[in-house]
């Protein structure tokens, strides 16, 4: 994969990870997912989120050597969390489907 794609993947995974952690909290599950996702899915959110955050670190490792990758990983996670924070009240549906949509776009871009 080229560095730009890996970096995008890192950011998308970081966002998905933060979204997972966020949906694992009842308050935000109600805000974003009630009526859109089945209730049992909530229990999966936190483990998937943690996994996704870990994978974001792996994706950063594709772009940079270890030291820089750790810096970029922290940065991506923090900024992804902030983007999620701003999207939630103003565009809850976008906040929920952003990782899916961008993941699909990325897959299409990678297959071209």
């Amino acid at each position: 994969m080229n560095p730009a794609a890996s970096f995008t993947l890192c950011v998308v995974l970081a966002y998905a990870g933060m979204l997972g952690l966020c949906l694992g909290m009842d308050r935000h599950w109600k805000q974003l997912a009630t009526g859109r996702l089945p209730a049992y899915a909530q229990r999966l959110c936190r483990p998937i989120g943690v996994l996704s955050l870990g994978l974001a670190g792996w994706a950063a490792g594709l772009v940079w050597p270890v030291g820089m990758a750790i810096v970029a990983w922290f940065g991506s996670i923090s900024l992804a969390g902030f983007v999620l924070l701003m999207l939630m009240p103003y565009a809850p549906r976008l906040a929920l489907w952003l990782p899916v949509a961008s993941g699909m776009l990325l897959a299409v871009a990678a297959s071209l």
Partner: peptide, 22 residues
């Protein structure tokens, strides 16, 4: 070096820039 943010090319620069804005 962590403060000067000269490493890692443009993606890293943008991360630093956006973090700074926040």
């Amino acid at each position: 070096g962590l403060h000067f943010a000269q490493f890692g090319g443009y993606p890293m620069r943008w991360l630093y820039f956006l973090c700074g804005l926040v």
